[in-house]
Design a protein around this nucleic acid. Structure first.
Lengths: 248, 248
DNA sequence: TTATATTTGTCCGTATGTATA
DNA sequence: CTATACATACGGACAAATATA
């Protein structure tokens, strides 16, 4: 018997999601051109071998994501800019992104947020950031609880940037960094000194923000992201021709 | 004056979307706590006064956006981090964002993309950017067709950044800038010299990219966004305490 | 303009697999 | 193990909006 997290095995899976994913692929591949009409629900149901209810749920998802727009009596039409309404990191239909690409995206938004947090933070913002930093110090001594404080630290910085939209974006692109922080604060991570080095980066970032030095905060955030990637084994040189620019 | 084409007015139709929006508001407001279970489809159908089909389509949308996860036989449960799967600019459930916030977000990603395009562009990338720039010059003389070339110019820069994820993000956050470019290239805009000034900014951006000067490209992109906002009447000072940091 | 066919929107009934008490 | 509750899926039906002849 295997203890490791056995893969999703093979979910007999939501039928509507499979149909929706298939339609999404066809749309993004240009099979259905922008402005063009999709086959009717009855035709799609017959073609996929499912009921019209399943097709309707699939189209409801595509409509919610801005890929199609359906008008009663007319049909479902592909939007002019398919996929312009929502942004997702892991896109089921697009080709998967490399770790380096995701990390660079994080670096961009985290650096911008840190720079603005340094210039716009309130006293309450700074207190929240300092509190999370102190909790990480305590976690370093206690040997536990660092991951949660790490999350709170970065969320507090995001909240201090003064732009709710930027705050939402950075929390969005860093959503699974929460998982990335566990190996840093695990027993192995503490012993290997990964947590100690991360905390050094945190402190530099905090001091730049507290000093109101936007440029220094940007550099500190970039260094922290680079350090995080290195601790996770994501090889990645920032300049000049990284995340893969090979001709497709 | 709002730049974004304020919400689709208020369509009397689509029952499933109204139900979905209502459920989304309740979830984000914490009415249904993370991990908690939603009422059954039958209960929701009775509560909203609609059929189960409508409720199912609404839940399908929430599931696609990562707000809930439904298991057959158990029910629909609120995800631990509601709304962490997708990112949208105009969020029906959240409080609407100000124009200044949207423009700052654009500035962040466009500047980052321009910097990377300067450092990573290929010869083909540069040719595409130069071609769009030339078409804008031609449009300045002809007095028409500038908006399309403007779109192509910025898309070509995005394509040259060497990170497909960043490219998708910048195209996403700048989706309705296409509408913002019309007043610049309209008859009034041409007469008032707005197109001419925009083209000066475009040329500076192109030259920085062609020279491989990332820092200059970043500054040029920032200046272009600031100029665009000014031409659209969006008042916005970059430092230090802008987009509204009033205590809530 | 009228009439007809098509398509989406909505509702209902039913059967099945699954989870839970 | 049994029974209940629930989501999933199917099929039929009608109304409303639209397109077309």
């Amino acid at each position: 018997m295997s203890v490791v997290p056995l893969t999703p095995v093979l979910r007999p899976g939501r039928l509507a999601e499979e149909v929706g994913a298939d339609l999404e692929r066809r749309i993004r591949r240009g099979d259905f051109p922008p402005g063009g009409r999709l086959p009717s629900e009855s035709q799609l149901a017959a073609q996929f071998g499912v009921s019209r209810t399943v097709v309707r749920e699939a189209i409801a998802r595509l409509r919610a994501e801005g890929l199609v727009d359906s008008r009663q009596g007319a049909g479902a039409f592909v939007m002019q800019r398919p996929g312009a309404a929502s942004f997702r990191l892991r896109d089921v239909s697009a080709e998967p992104c490399s770790d380096a690409e995701v990390f660079e995206l994080r670096l961009v938004v985290e650096a911008a947020v840190a720079e603005r947090a340094a210039r716009r933070h309130t006293a309450a913002d700074l207190a929240a950031i300092a509190g999370a930093l102190a909790r990480m110090d305590a976690a370093l001594r206690a040997g536990e609880g660092g991951a949660e404080a790490d999350d709170a630290f970065h969320r507090a910085i995001a909240a201090a940037c003064g732009n709710a939209l930027l705050q939402r974006l950075v929390e969005f692109v860093s959503q699974d960094l929460s998982a990335s922080r566990r190996p840093t604060w695990s027993r192995d991570g503490l012993i290997a000194g990964r947590a100690l080095r991360a905390q050094d980066e945190h402190r530099a970032l905090f001091e730049a923000i507290a000093a109101g030095d936007g440029a220094a905060a940007r550099r500190a955030a970039e260094q922290h992201l680079i350090g995080t990637a290195a601790r996770l084994g994501v090889s990645w040189s920032l300049d000049p021709a990284s995340p893969s620019k090979e001709p497709t």
